[in-house]
């Protein structure tokens, strides 16, 4: 089991050991003092950490987060990381994202389409340490490849692939193989793991740019 990043700890909430970060609660999660529980059932990155994947996260990184939705996961990321760019395409969840950003001075919400990096390349800095991607759209590998331009040479891509977004009718494992193949055009895959314990038909991928 790999080390948790600084700022993420296992703490006891109501008698159970859970991942936690320090920050204002966002989605009604249990709190203990300034710590709040990180629910791996609602967060793919939370599941990747819970399953012991080697994310390479240490704490304090500059992060580009694609598919921030209502800010459930990205709020935890902003709790332990440095400057965090949160890209979300839909207006309704972005409203919740703004609320999560309220108490987090280094969380930058952006209402942009992750498939069009040119629309935010004038805002997001180059050489970020980590790109985290959780977008429910077809062509998830392509999104990761197009956003590789933001990543530092020794940076990490943390990707949650949702099989049902690519094609509901096909076997998830076949879809995952395809995504892995396509991803190999720009990334070296370091680790993959099914997240089914927490998220049905999702694959967690850790990769670094080629």
């Amino acid at each position: 089991m790999s080390d948790l990043p600084d700022g993420v700890e296992r703490r006891t909430f109501d008698g159970t050991d859970r991942l936690a970060t320090r920050g204002d609660p966002v989605y009604g999660e249990p709190t203990d003092g300034e710590w709040r529980a990180w629910n791996p059932n609602r967060s793919k990155l939370g599941a990747m950490l819970e399953l012991g994947m080697d994310t390479g996260l240490e704490g304090g990184e500059t992060v580009l987060y694609l598919g921030a939705a209502s800010g459930t996961t990205v709020s935890h990321v902003a709790d332990f990381a440095g400057p965090t760019y949160a890209v979300e395409f839909a207006a309704r969840p972005a409203r919740d994202l703004l609320e999560a950003a309220d108490s987090r001075p280094r969380l930058f919400p952006l209402l942009k389409d992750a498939r069009k990096p040119a629309t935010y390349a004038h805002v997001v800095e180059s050489d970020v340490d980590v790109v985290i991607q959780d977008v429910a759209t077809r062509g998830q590998a392509r999104v990761a490849l197009e956003n590789a331009q933001f990543l530092a040479d020794d940076g990490r891509l943390l990707l949650a692939v949702k099989a049902r977004s690519e094609d509901v009718t096909r076997e998830p494992s076949a879809i995952f193989d395809e995504v892995r193949d396509e991803l190999a055009d720009g990334y070296e895959i370091l680790e993959t793991r099914r997240l089914d314990d927490y998220h049905t038909d999702h694959l967690g991928i850790v990769a670094r740019p080629r």
Partner: peptide, 19 residues
């Protein structure tokens, strides 16, 4: 980063309200 935060928050809030 303070200026970026102010600008991105204002931009996103305006875009959300409009949409």
């Amino acid at each position: 980063y303070d200026a970026l935060r102010a600008a991105t928050t204002a931009a996103t809030a305006a875009a959300v309200t409009e949409r």
